[in-house]
Nucleic acid binder design. Structure first.
Length: 243
DNA sequence: GCGACAG
DNA sequence: ATCTTGTCGC
């Protein structure tokens, strides 16, 4: 009986959340800030991280907030943290960060304190960055709060700003033939909000990559492809178990 | 016909 | 997310 989570918060809360998004959005940096991001082989990049909130049971609110750090380019585990948490805020499209982010920020801060040498140089985030209703998805939010480069990786197209998962979109997906192939997702405003990426040769369903913070879209897409042994980038593929 | 809604 | 399913469509 996967009962649906509690209904939407009152309008005043949503307005608050929107205000916070708008305010933090001004701090997003949507270009490369690190030398390795411009290097063809990403040389200088040694640690890539991923965060995720995965559910244990039905909708009890019981979940596992995890942070994984892998070596690059080997993609071997350097650090794993998985903490049981109780989610309070409901899931509302456009406000994912307010449900999951506090726990992810905690995980990053804890790593920063205990094992600063293992701090990842970039974080993959489940969900979108600037490909978002108000241009400030969870990957931007996490990036701004932690000051780490972040990449938004979503498994479904968020249909905002005129973007639609329609026949034309599906045709474009068909044209992605090899891992690494991608096409731009252009919003109605003429801005490129992200790219649909075929993340692996044998993956037919694309990933939707968008800038979170402190990285260009081009580098984000290239690195995402580079971290995919399968469809989902290794740092966010299989979160560690609590036990 | 019941929707467009990342996770 | 998670159940599970199938090949559409404004």
């Amino acid at each position: 009986m996967a009962r649906k989570a509690a209904g939407k918060p009152p309008e005043e809360i949503l307005l608050d959340w929107k205000r916070e998004q708008a305010s933090l959005k001004a701090r997003v940096v949507d270009r490369d800030t690190e030398a390795w991001q411009r290097d063809p082989a990403f040389s200088g990049l040694q640690r890539v991280g991923g965060v995720d909130v995965s559910f244990v049971k039905d909708d009890s609110g019981s979940a596992c907030a995890s942070l994984v750090v892998l070596s690059y380019p080997e993609l071997e585990v350097l650090y794993e943290d998985c903490r049981m948490v109780t989610l309070t805020a409901p899931y509302v499209s456009g406000f994912l960060a307010f449900r999951e982010l506090p726990f992810l920020v905690d995980a990053v801060q804890q790593l920063r304190q205990r094992e600063p040498r293992l701090m990842p140089q970039v974080l993959f985030v489940d969900g979108n960055g600037v490909l978002h209703h108000r241009g400030f998805g969870v990957a931007c939010h996490l990036g701004v709060l932690t000051d780490l480069p972040c990449i938004g990786v979503a498994k479904k197209l968020l249909q905002v700003d005129g973007l639609e998962n329609n026949a034309l979109h599906k045709e474009k997906i068909q044209l992605l033939k090899a891992g690494g192939d991608s096409f731009p997702l252009m919003g109605g405003s003429g801005t490129v909000l992200g790219r649909a990426l075929r993340s692996h040769d044998h993956s037919t369903k694309p990933l939707y990559v968008s800038v979170g913070h402190k990285i260009s879209l081009e580098a984000a897409v290239r690195l995402t492809h580079s971290c995919c042994k399968f469809r989902i980038p290794e740092p966010v593929r299989q979160p560690p178990s609590p036990g």
